[in-house]
Design a binder for these strands. Structure first.
Length: 490
RNA sequence: CGGGAUGUGGCUCAGUCUGGUAGAGCACAGCGUUCGGGACGCUGGGGCCGGAGGUUCAAAUCCUCUCAUCCCGACCA
């Protein structure tokens, strides 16, 4: 097969980039740091979006939409929040262009300067809380359970397709509650939804945990995260859910009368997941032949490639292909019959492998004679000849098996790449040589955490589901109650 | 914002040192042979060499300025 991708072993970053471009997911645009998401990539996003949207609605959330622009003054209301985002905001200062009389072309009209600058949202807490203020008077107005699908802009210094772009697509949930307990429960519920989505839908195992003080979201009391492990041994934060306490309610003066007739500030959460998950999908499962997509997110689940010589061989093949396609569609499977005569079978095989189509069916004269088809699965690259009889239900079951296999493979990798370390030297050994997650004791202090950061790795999270265990911090030797996850991250 | 590099058909690059008719591979188009793992042959189309000045009989090549992009650091879903 002609080499179109750099191999993972050769250069992982290059492999990733080649893959995104060659498989037609996305490409760089004329605007620095902003990508064009191409139809195949967007189709994956639409699938993710549909599933998440379903999960959100099943837990009582509704969608709404808030403005792209946020008045600058809103940002300064919550101190930590400004601190966190100020350095990466795009700012609108003018509202008109005019012809340049001297040099030709267009210039910004200096007379069209805005009274107050507008910030292109890097996240919407501020504009949303400014709005919620008008919606909440009584505990009867609560809870507010809203999600928004939107684009946001964070002016990153260095960008990478899907993993870090200046503009990205995401959903952001923003909820308001009458009690602390209810808001905490909501934040926890949402991180669990993300975990389930990642494992069941994307086939990517996660560690659910909470962030340290220094890694928390700007303005949050508690940040929960799902940490995923990529094939190169680096961690990726896959989604976050924040318990915001009363910080934003206080900053935006959102008060309500509670059941006892007393005035109180509203309790809040926010949670988000982004197009970065497409990057995670690639880095978790794909190989040197191209994408490996779990059937659940694959825009094309099954492709049928006819093999024929001369136009007279095609009709009987097309007849069988069309019949199989119809049966599969009836079972809810997304099938493409690629009967283009402009590309050869070999070319198509390579192309669909690159695009990660889970199952490929090839039908040629031989199969017509024998009543068979050739089936190839993308995850294992296995090929076998099977009877046409009962093919649809066979494939339906095969897709479920592929989904499961992809997850199992990623889980095995994650487990064998997770190392318990009990000393600084062991930690360094994992970070420098082995890669993956290091489970180590940490004393909970900023000093020890900073020391760990000097290695370029960070404390990814304090796992929620691991059992507590007494131990000694690998940095200071002081007592610790729990192991934390340390890894280099994207 | 510090350090390094690069701008030449759609893409990857050669040509720049040593100035002298703009090249290759891929991609694209036509024709023919092919078609069970990215076919091959022949033919063809496509480039104010990032931009602006300058030196010269002559500039992709030398000089000055400028713009842009990429890589490495600090920031980050």
């Amino acid at each position: 097969m002609a080499k179109v991708l750099t191999s993972r072993e050769e250069n992982y970053a290059q492999w990733y980039n080649d893959l995104v471009l060659k498989s037609g997911l996305a490409e760089n645009s004329a605007v620095r740091g902003c990508m064009v998401i191409k139809p195949y990539g967007y189709a994956i996003w639409e699938k993710m979006k549909a599933e998440l949207d379903r999960m959100f609605k099943a837990t009582g959330h509704e969608n709404a939409y808030f403005p792209l622009f946020i008045p600058k003054s809103f940002f300064s209301r919550e101190a930590d929040h400004v601190e966190g985002f100020a350095k990466e905001c795009a700012v609108v200062t003018h509202y008109r262009l005019k012809n340049d009389e001297e040099n030709g072309g267009l210039i910004v009209d200096p007379n069209a300067k805005l009274e107050e600058e507008l910030i292109v949202r890097p996240t919407s807490e501020t504009i949303i809380w400014n709005t919620y203020k008008n919606w909440v008077q009584s505990y009867r107005d609560l809870p507010i359970l809203i999600n928004q699908w939107a684009n946001v802009v964070r002016w990153e210094m260095r960008t990478r397709l899907f993993l870090r772009t200046a503009e990205f697509l995401w959903q952001e949930g923003h909820t308001a509650h009458a009690t602390r307990e209810e808001a905490e429960k909501e934040a926890m519920q949402m991180i669990r939804i993300y975990a389930e989505f990642s494992e069941k839908f994307l086939g990517i195992p996660v560690v659910v945990g909470s962030k340290t003080e220094s890694e928390k979201f700007a303005g949050a009391v508690e940040t929960y995260t799902i940490e995923q492990l990529m094939q190169d041994g680096k961690a990726l934060q896959g989604g976050t859910s924040h318990f915001l306490g009363q910080n934003f309610a206080k900053a935006f003066d959102v008060q309500f009368t509670n059941r006892e007739g007393k005035l109180d500030h509203v309790w809040a959460t926010s949670w988000g997941m982004t197009t970065r998950m497409i990057g995670a999908l690639i880095m978790a499962h794909s190989d040197n032949n191209g994408l490996v997509l779990p059937p659940s997110v694959a825009p094309i689940q099954v492709v049928i490639v006819p093999i024929y010589r001369g136009d007279d061989q095609l009709p009987p093949i097309a007849e069988v292909a069309t019949k199989i396609k119809k049966e599969l569609v009836e079972l809810g499977v997304e099938v493409k019959f690629d009967d283009r005569d402009t590309q050869k079978p070999g070319w198509k095989f390579a192309e669909y492998e690159l695009k990660g189509v889970p199952v490929r069916i090839a039908i040629g004269p031989r199969d017509i004679e024998n009543g068979t088809v050739e089936l190839a699965r993308r995850d294992t690259l296995e090929k076998k000849v099977v009877p046409q009889e009962g093919i649809a239900s066979y494939i339906k079951a095969l897709l479920a098996e592929i989904q499961e296999n992809i997850y199992r493979k990623a889980l095995t990798f994650r487990n064998t790449s997770t190392h318990r370390v009990d000393s600084w030297d062991e930690l360094i050994d994992v970070l420098d040589n082995k890669g993956g997650f290091a489970l180590a004791h940490w004393d909970g202090t900023r000093e020890s955490e900073d020391r760990i950061k000097e290695t370029k790795a960070t404390i990814r999270c304090l796992p929620l589901d691991d059992e507590m265990e007494e131990g000694r911090c690998v940095v200071s030797g002081k007592p610790s109650k729990q192991r934390v996850v340390i890894a280099k991250a994207y």
